[in-house]
Write a protein that binds this DNA or RNA. Sequence first.
DNA 1: GGCAAAATAATTGGCGCCAAAATGTTTGCA
DNA 2: TGCAAACATTTTGGCGCCAATTATTTTGCC
Lengths: 221, 221
Amino acid sequence: MSAKTKRSPESLVDLMARDIQAGVFTPGSWLKQIDLENRYGATRMDVRRALDQLALKRLVRHVPNRGYHVHALDDRQADEIRDVRVILETAAAESMVENVGPADLEDLRRLAARFDELTLTGTILEQYEANIAFHVRLLKLCSNQELVNIVMELRGRGPSAPATQWKTRARIEQSGREHLLMIEALAAHDTAALRRVLTAHIRQTGLEGVASTQPPKHKSG
Amino acid sequence: MSAKTKRSPESLVDLMARDIQAGVFTPGSWLKQIDLENRYGATRMDVRRALDQLALKRLVRHVPNRGYHVHALDDRQADEIRDVRVILETAAAESMVENVGPADLEDLRRLAARFDELTLTGTILEQYEANIAFHVRLLKLCSNQELVNIVMELRGRGPSAPATQWKTRARIEQSGREHLLMIEALAAHDTAALRRVLTAHIRQTGLEGVASTQPPKHKSG
DNA sequence: GGCAAAATAATTGGCGCCAAAATGTTTGCA
DNA sequence: TGCAAACATTTTGGCGCCAATTATTTTGCC
């Protein structure tokens, strides 16, 4: 591979996290340090550091004297993380509705339009990035910055890999429609509606049967 | 100091995190690697690893070529983290009430009693541990394990250092009473009451004026 | 005596090497 | 031919040294 891309070691974790998310490494596969060195043009020490940090983030798992392998979370964990996201993002909805302004709506409409555009013309990765951009902008409306950080982290940890997230074109288009519904709810300052859409969007279920005010139930017990 | 205490390098992060929480290192002070080596009887590499992980956890901050210093979070961040804890723990309340059984109540009563006992006879650190033990046991009632993990992590990051947490004996005794109120609410399967107590307990405000059902407001804007 | 600049000391941080452990392969034996 | 043991290869992981950078003290000059 290209010998030296000279990346800032700080962002190597993020880079690897993205690649794991993007499905470059299949879940369960072992991450050999040599390969990572070559792929990212990093030193062995940087790779080890990044691996450790990713293990702390639960994205990879460390087995002493065996190495690191990407952590494939089971259905239960995936459900649980989704539920936590629903809890946090619906809790943030109130703050979002309070803080939203015309400029925010403008931005969001632009980002939603871009996502829809890429539904037709873009690659899966571009769609993924556009979706992230929309949601980051949306989350920034929340005044609680720590909450935003935690949600972003969960988003990275959950089963939001593009490969598994949007299985069908219909699902992608549905996501696009839900983005618009969120903007509508924000514009109308309708917290309950926003919560409903967010819940459906995160759970990727239809909008029917989603209670608006009460916190989400936990499936697994 | 004692040359080799031979700790498992895995837990060094937790150990240091605890010490930071316990106020062994004053906020803002620089953590010299040599001192840490001696104090924990660890190798330089282990210290560096732990430092990096703590930086990722936002417990310490890294300044290149200057070192690491313990990160004193400002009031705003402290408030925000508290708010997130309120959101998550009140959301967990429903699941807790659903899952609680007689054996759980028994355990909780025992742990609460132990906390009260240490109010009189124990050191601050013992009180801290007993408190943690109670809350871990309480959280374990929640079926969502990921939620539990996140709350535990937040608990470690938030301003829950014993030094700042229980300023007065009156405050400690109040905490003990609140523990009992939680158990009562659990026994009565009263989700709303549990939420109320949890909110007051985390915020360390009185029980008056705490809404039971609606999510917490965010102070900082 | 006070300030600036140079020399010294202390600390961080990067890099590479080699031992320990595990995996895969070949060989030997029943 | 199937199984087991020994060998070879690969991979991880620990340790130490030294360069780069920063803090501190000393020295020299005005």
